[in-house]
Design a protein around this nucleic acid. Structure first.
Lengths: 238, 238
DNA sequence: TCGGATAGGCGCCCA
DNA sequence: TGGGCGCTTATCCGA
């Protein structure tokens, strides 16, 4: 790869993939330096930059969408510098292992189920999951109070605020629930509003905080409407 | 790329990079489906899988380190299925645009400054940033009160708990501070313990919550020891 | 744009 | 291994 190849690709809407030995400096929201090593560098068509090491899920360095690039050759080596106005990065290439630039087209979005939102819909449609006699209010009404997952009356007409968590509920979840309960209590001028966490589990410290506040926990897991994938994939599985 | 090439690479410690038109199913912590489109697929030497679309920072699908893979050819097309025992993914390839498999070596770690930890060290070394007469006792320590960023006495020998945030402090930050203050107050049997948020800014609702609790805010930004990078990169900059 | 909240969050440290 | 929590978190959604 020559600097000219990189420049040409950067001027196009192609997605660039480079593997190379390089070192990297970053300055912006923080300051960082990454010494020489082999990495995968991706510059997407929207000018997002990702630098990946040969292990791990998260990029070690990156720049967000809309970054401007400049490639220069200095002493036989290529330096790629870039900026979005507030942040700066420079990649100092030692050896290029591979270089590709391709037009990639993909307008698809991920269809996903099993989110916290799906949990609240499930509870709305199956109020017994909370308890017998629980009557969720309409979605419209429930949005009037802000980001309350599920909101309704129990069999004694006491207001109930339900906070869903798709994984273990932690202290933050209990505090969030407390904020909503307090908000509803104030807005309605009520002394008693119940708070319930719906989650597959709860951490010990969160359980303690829950108890202290007089709130409750229901053992509920997020729904997975597409379980059929599971079956299909188990057959394919290694 | 033939299925055999993929299999061979999967049996090695090489890092595989494929660009292809494909569709993807996932089942595990949630369930998802991604219809046909062009993507970059990376399988790292530690068997991390990343699928990236031509735009955006985050992978659209992924599997973590230690995943097991199986490549099969079915009706002239390649299907790559994988699992870690709890999660399953399958990539259905329509057309392969490119395929590479390389040995990449990188043992470097990112050297970074400007973290919350660096803020607490800065405050520990420059107590005046909080106020005159502030005497820090500890920083970022797992005291028996928990993870308190900076902890000390003010000029009147009143205990002070400082919570650092590298960006805008939100309601969660105030609640976190409150947990620590309450814990110290209980453990020491004190009626008055001060709470201070050190952050470059604070959201309006967090400021309100701060006020209600009698806590304070100090306008402090995370330090950037490597500012020299900034200068260097500004010169290189586009 | 900002604020609030979720995420298949990830990654790090520590009991 | 699980809890607690920071992150250059990213991303979505609503005001």
């Amino acid at each position: 790869m020559e600097a000219a190849d990189l420049k040409e690709a950067l001027d196009s809407s192609k997605t660039i993939i480079i593997t190379a030995n390089c070192s990297i400096t970053y300055s912006g929201r923080a300051e960082s330096f990454l010494a020489e090593g082999d990495r995968i560098i991706i510059i997407k068509s929207d000018k997002t930059l990702l630098v990946h090491q040969p292990g791990g899920s998260a990029p070690i360095n990156y720049m967000k969408e809309g970054t401007a690039y400049k490639a220069i050759a200095e002493g036989g080596k290529i330096i790629l510098s870039c900026s979005n106005g507030k942040e700066y990065m420079a990649i100092y290439f030692n050896r290029i292992h591979s270089f590709t630039a391709q037009e990639l087209a993909d307008g698809q979005k991920l269809q996903i189920t099993g989110s916290e939102k799906d949990m609240s819909v499930m509870i709305y449609n199956n109020p017994k999951l909370i308890e017998d006699g629980f009557r969720p209010l309409s979605m419209e009404e429930h949005t009037r109070f802000g980001f309350i997952d599920v909101f309704g009356y129990d069999r004694n007409n006491v207001l109930v605020v339900v906070e869903c968590k798709r994984y273990a509920a932690d202290m933050g979840a209990v505090e969030q629930l407390k904020r909503y309960v307090d908000k509803v209590r104030q807005a309605k001028g009520l002394s008693l509003v119940r708070g319930i966490i719906a989650a597959p589990k709860i951490t010990p410290s969160a359980a303690e905080m829950l108890r202290q506040n007089g709130y409750e926990h229901r053992n509920i897991s997020p729904p997975k409407y597409m379980e059929r994938f599971d079956e299909k994939q188990k057959r394919l599985e290694v």
